[in-house]
Amino acid sequence: MNMIDRIRRHRMISRQNRAIERAMQSAPTQAMRDEIAVIAQRRWTN
């Protein structure tokens, strides 16, 4: 992986992490937050 690809991957991961964090903060119920957490965790294990 070259430097440009690493930078793009880092930016993409950062953007996804911010989106997950926003979704967690705006989720109206704990059940929705739990579901978001499960989805986010699956993203890293696949």
Rank of each mutant, 00 (worst) to 15 (best):
S14I: 10
Q25C: 09
W44S: 14
N17I: 09
R9G: 04
A40S: 06
I36D: 02
D34L: 14
R43C: 09
T45N: 14
T29M: 10
W44M: 15
I39F: 00
I20K: 08
D34R: 02
D34C: 08
M12E: 09
R22S: 09
I4G: 06
E21N: 12
R15D: 12
Q25H: 12
D5C: 11
R33K: 12
R11K: 15
E35A: 13
I13S: 11
D34P: 07
R18W: 07
I13Y: 10
A31M: 08
A27S: 07
H10W: 11
R9D: 05
R42S: 13
A23E: 07
M12L: 13
H10I: 11
R18G: 07
A37P: 01
S26F: 01
N17H: 14
N46F: 11
M12G: 04
I39Y: 04
M32E: 06
S14G: 12
Q41E: 15
Q25N: 13
A19F: 02
V38Q: 12
R18N: 13
M3E: 10
T45K: 14
R6V: 06
W44C: 13
R15M: 14
I4K: 08
T29A: 09
Q16A: 15
A31V: 06
M24V: 00
N2I: 06
D34K: 05
A31K: 02
M1D: 01
A31L: 05
I7W: 06
I36Q: 01
I13L: 13
N2F: 04
I39R: 04
S14V: 12
A37Y: 01
A27H: 00
R43P: 03
V38K: 08
R11E: 14
Q25E: 10
M3W: 06
E21L: 12
R6L: 10
D5G: 08
R6A: 01
I20V: 15
W44F: 15
T29L: 11
Q41R: 13
D5M: 04
A40T: 05
Q16R: 11
R15L: 13
N17Y: 03
W44H: 13
H10N: 02
A31I: 04
S14A: 13
E21M: 13
R8D: 09
I36R: 02
T45E: 11
M32K: 05
I7N: 02
A27L: 11
A19H: 04
S26H: 00
A40R: 01
D34W: 03
R43E: 05
R18Y: 10
S14P: 06
A37S: 03
I4P: 02
M1C: 07
I13R: 05
M32I: 02
R22Y: 03
A40C: 02
R9Q: 11
Q16W: 14
S26G: 00
A31T: 01
R42C: 13
R18K: 11
R43V: 09
